[in-house]
């Protein structure tokens, strides 16, 4: 049994939930997608701006409503994607997914997750893993030109 207060609701997550970063629309976004978690009713819209095909992400943002985990995850995601190439995004996406499934341990496995490691305890709460991954799937859907993404 894991205590959610120490494993999940860490200060960084609480703080990003209260003051989410890049919580706005990007007018003229080159990519965007909506993400739903039909089980929770969580609903996010992720916007991405890439100057020209193949260049780095120069802006990324989100809007929507959800639980603290999904909002904090979306907020932290936007802060870690700016300036990344598509290939770097893929690496981060893969590492984040292994992290939240408990397959990557940030203290011993090499990674570039940085402050995203704050989600390392979430795999102890299987019902909440989807909350953390919604924004990431939505962002990937946007880059892949998929308009609506659902997780359940």
């Amino acid at each position: 049994m894991y205590d959610s207060r120490s494993e999940l609701y860490q200060q960084v997550i609480i703080e990003h939930n209260q003051s989410p970063r890049n919580f706005r629309k990007i007018p003229g976004a080159t990519h965007d997608a909506e993400g739903y978690n039909p089980l929770c009713g969580d609903h996010l819209h992720v916007y991405v701006h890439v100057q020209e095909p193949g260049s780095v992400i120069d802006d990324v943002s989100f809007e929507g409503d959800g639980c603290a985990i999904s909002k904090a995850s979306a907020s932290l995601m936007t802060t870690s994607l700016k300036g990344k190439t598509r290939q770097e995004v893929e690496v981060l996406f893969d590492q984040f997914h292994r992290l939240i499934k408990g397959e990557l341990h940030p203290d011993k496995d090499p990674n570039v997750l940085g402050k995203l490691s704050v989600f390392s305890g979430i795999w102890h709460f299987p019902a909440r893993v989807k909350c953390a991954s919604l924004s990431w799937h939505t962002m990937k859907g946007a880059l892949d030109k998929v308009k609506t993404v659902t997780t359940e």
Binding site: D3, S4, R5, L8, Y9, C40, G66, C67, A68, I69, F125, A127, R128, C131
Partner: peptide
């Protein structure tokens, strides 16, 4: 959010 309440009272 209700899901955060659910997780916290489960503690």
């Amino acid at each position: 959010h209700a899901h955060d309440i659910g997780t916290l009272v489960n503690d």
